[in-house]
Structures are given as structure tokens and as C-alpha cells.
């Protein structure tokens, strides 16, 4: 009799613990304001128009960029208009949670560049153009545009976004993102077209987050 009661107690305790676990997991996900991001970045975070893909982006890079919006260091017009407000009340723990969440999603290549320019873009990406002081992107961003630590993944980002980002460095925005302002300055308009086109077609290579 006593034993049965004890079993019953243990059983209900187990159920309660399980319920707590499930509730805990659910609330952790609910607590992340993912939908605030996906309004613009796409419901599966694959990017939409000028809002870049976040899926598969590097955790440390997302965290750093969120901080740079908060510090108003990333200051191009759309960042000012949308991202400054979006991160204004974002606490570090939530920022980290979002970075971990988005970096865990499998990215798809935007493939929206001009395919005819891809070979030229790859040549610039892999080798640079030494005579014009164009550095080889591969040295920092890796053989498949996968990035490393807080150096962003570029492979498969949209042509529209990549082109705009390189142009904005030349227009004087986000100059703290060294050495990219200098790199952007060395690129001709045609080289920007080619690089952004090439990268938009690069397929996801999983090298961890």
C-alpha cells in the first residue's frame, strides 16, 4: 500500500519534471524575439531584399554587428532607420540567444547575381588583384566564403546586399569595420559587380558556427 503510494508519488514527480522540462524549452524559445527579426530578414531568415540572410551567419559576427548597431557604428541609412531602433533595448543575453539561434539555421544561396560574372568574381576572391592593391578575400573569409569567428560568412549572401555593403563603405559609412573600408576603396564598380555575383552562388559549406 505504502509502496504503491510511493510509486505513484515518484510517477507524478516524473511527469511534473517532464512537463517542466518541456515548458522550460518552449519558454526559452518564446523568450527569443525571433519574429521581430524575421519580419524583415524572412520567415526562415534567408534574407529579403536589403535585409541580409541571417541563417548560417557566424554567431560571433551577428553578436558583434548587433553591438555595432547599438553603438551607432554601423550607420548606413537603412541601419539607422531599422536596426538602431531594433537593438536599442536588446540585452546581451538575448542578443547572444538570437545569434546562436540564427547561426544554427541552414542557409540557402541567394543566387541572384549575374552568372556570367561568377568566374571573374571567383578570380578576384581567390587571388585579389595585386597590381591594383586589391586584397584576396579568401585570406580572411576562407576558401568557400565561410568566414571564421567574427569574420562573416559571405558565401550565398545576396548580390543585392553584398553590392550595397561594399558601396556603402565607399560612401563613408561604417568606417570602423576595418579593414573593409580600405578593401572597398580598392575595388572598381565592375569588380564589385563580379564579386557580389560570384558570392551569391556559393553553396553552404558547414564548418561549424
Amino acid at each position: 500500500m505504502q509502496r504503491a503510494r510511493r510509486d505513484q508519488r515518484t510517477g507524478s514527480g516524473l511527469v511534473a519534471a517532464l512537463l517542466l522540462l518541456i515548458a522550460g524549452a518552449a519558454s526559452a524559445q518564446d523568450a527569443l524575439p525571433v519574429r521581430n527579426c524575421t519580419w524583415c530578414h524572412g520567415s526562415s531568415a534567408q534574407g529579403f531584399m536589403f535585409a541580409p540572410r541571417l541563417a548560417g551567419q557566424r554567431t560571433a559576427y551577428i553578436e558583434r554587428e548587433l553591438a555595432s548597431f547599438a553603438a551607432h557604428a554601423r550607420d548606413n541609412p537603412l541601419s539607422q532607420k531599422y536596426m538602431w531602433g531594433a537593438v536599442a533595448r536588446l540585452d546581451p543575453a538575448t542578443a547572444q540567444g538570437l545569434a546562436v539561434y540564427f547561426s544554427s539555421l541552414a542557409p540557402e544561396a541567394a543566387a541572384d547575381g549575374q552568372s556570367g560574372l561568377a568566374a571573374t568574381g571567383k578570380a578576384i576572391y581567390d587571388n585579389g588583384v595585386a597590381v591594383d592593391n586589391v586584397a584576396a578575400c579568401i585570406a580572411c573569409h576562407g576558401p568557400n566564403g565561410e568566414g571564421v569567428r567574427d569574420i562573416p560568412r559571405l558565401g550565398g549572401l545576396s548580390y543585392v546586399y553584398l553590392k550595397r555593403r561594399l558601396e556603402q563603405w565607399n560612401q563613408g559609412y561604417h568606417q570602423s569595420a576595418k579593414p573593409m573600408p580600405l578593401v572597398a576603396k580598392s575595388l572598381s564598380a565592375n569588380e564589385v559587380e563580379a564579386l557580389a555575383s560570384y558570392l551569391s552562388f556559393v553553396q553552404f559549406v558547414d564548418v561549424g558556427r
Binding site: 579568401i138 585570406a139 580572411c140 576562407g142 568566414g147 571564421v148 569567428r149 569574420i151 579593414p179
Partner: peptide, 12 residues
């Protein structure tokens, strides 16, 4: 690539 002050840099 080699760092702002040529102190070296860790990229890819």
C-alpha cells in the same frame, strides 16, 4: 591582411 600595424592577423 597582415594587421593595421603589421602585428599579424588571424583571418581564415
Amino acid at each position: 591582411c597582415h594587421g593595421v600595424n603589421a602585428q599579424g592577423f588571424r583571418g581564415s
